[in-house]
Design a protein around this nucleic acid. Structure first.
Lengths: 259, 259
DNA sequence: GTCTATATACGGATAGAC
DNA sequence: GTCTATCCGTATATAGAC
């Protein structure tokens, strides 16, 4: 599957995420006219992700926030009960959406190798479609209260297990070589994480999700698949020609993970 | 090389890092008696890393800080000009130390495979010895001013290139298969980063640095080395037995990356 | 060198007019 | 529904005694 095909199938976007957050918090929001609420919540969430991903949620003042959204302080507080509430609204709902799509994407695959590939691609594609949210979630999750942290941890362990189970099943079926499934799952997730945490690097080198997905899968396959399917000296992912013009963007790139 | 051997050779510790920070900032510090300064700076840096790695540097108030160090607010300000200054002192000096050790560790290795292995092990071992600093640096680097961000970026690109150059040289020499050296370097760094960013996971599963180093090297080798050396079905890194008692620690673990 | 007490500003949050 | 004006706690940072 390519990213374009994924998008055609799942129609995943920030707007979709925002709608889900709205649906889950409808009663807490004072303003009632749906069209208005959706328009302003979009501004609110966009601004939160933008400012936070530049300098951190804690460093985002309500006044920065007011300026970026174009709404006054008073208006903001008729959408959001508190700054902490804003954090939990955003973090809470995203996880559900991500997991549901991941599961739907691998459900139809029976073959272990196909399941592994589908899961890797799906994770990369979801994090591509919702990159600012993923980065935000990664950086800010620890600042939530006790309940929020436990949910984050649970969801982290859930995806670890999702990958580990695919590997275990594949090893039992003889499709994968014997490798520690738990360590492999964690390593795979580290490679997936790289896509949304270090996105500015990929932007600089002009690597697309599809290209990165191919690369990651070759890397993972080389370790897990039997040697026979892994003897090639001509990878599908060939080196790019050196990009001498790339350094022009270097100066301002640190911290602009959200560009 | 094992971690124990690494430690015997380099004697790397938080104290060593703190001494280097002190040397680089000696004239800015008002207090002059060296023994006193070193004792209190140790408390100051330990407290900063501890509190920040729990809830973020921005959320650490000077009163938290005063309580943790056992020094009054007034005393703190005779060591540190401002909170921002504290951030830059800590982040600035660590990078230099890390790079010097990395280079020293690979200098004596001529063979490409040995160089790659030495670099991977050295990076893991340095980040093990200075884990709180690495985590802090990863999470807080973007909150620095313009100059600080550029240095961070430069150092990030420098290590990228260090790994990419080893791969390139090895490919020219025929020791590695043709794989995009830049993408590989980034992937390797993602695996190294996992060690200090998700440390609570390794603590939970009881994985040591040495064990993780073996795993990462097998993973990397499977992708880069010619198929002949990569056909084994009996990896040196065998799966651990399942740990059923592990979930007891689950509840409080999120956010305690620093334990 | 270290403390306590305090100046000063900035933060989140709310009241009430429109 | 949105705004302006403002409350009030907490933050960083400093002054000056010991």
């Amino acid at each position: 599957m390519t990213y374009a095909e994924f998008q055609q199938r799942f129609q995943l976007s920030a707007e979709r995420l925002y709608q889900e957050i709205y649906r889950a918090n409808r009663e807490k929001i004072q303003v009632k006219k749906e069209a208005t609420v959706l328009r302003n919540l979009t501004r609110i969430f966009d601004a939160t992700l933008k400012i936070s991903n530049e300098k951190g949620f804690a460093a985002m003042s309500m006044r920065d926030f007011s300026r970026e959204t174009g709404l006054s302080l008073g208006a903001l507080y008729s959408y959001v009960a508190s700054k902490e509430d804003l954090l939990e609204m955003i973090l809470g709902q995203g996880r559900v959406l991500v997991l549901s799509i991941l599961e739907e994407a691998i459900a139809r695959e029976a073959d272990p190798v196909a399941r592994l590939h589908a899961a890797v691609r799906a994770h990369l594609f979801v994090s591509e479609a919702l990159q600012p949210w993923f980065y935000f979630s990664f950086m800010e999750a620890k600042k939530m209260g006790r309940a929020g942290k436990e949910q984050t941890l649970a969801s982290e362990m859930y995806t670890d297990r999702l990958f580990a189970d695919i590997l275990r099943a594949g090893q039992t079926a003889g499709a994968f070589r014997p490798r520690d499934p738990d360590q492999s799952a964690q390593a795979i997730k580290a490679l997936l994480q790289e896509w949304y945490v270090k996105r500015w690097k990929f932007a600089r080198t002009g690597v697309s999700v599809d290209r990165y997905a191919d690369f990651v899968l070759e890397f993972i396959d080389a370790f897990h698949l039997p040697a026979r399917s892994n003897r090639s000296n001509t990878p599908s992912v060939v080196p790019l020609p050196a990009r001498h013009g790339g350094s022009r963007r270097a100066a301002g790139a640190a911290g602009k993970e959200n560009a």
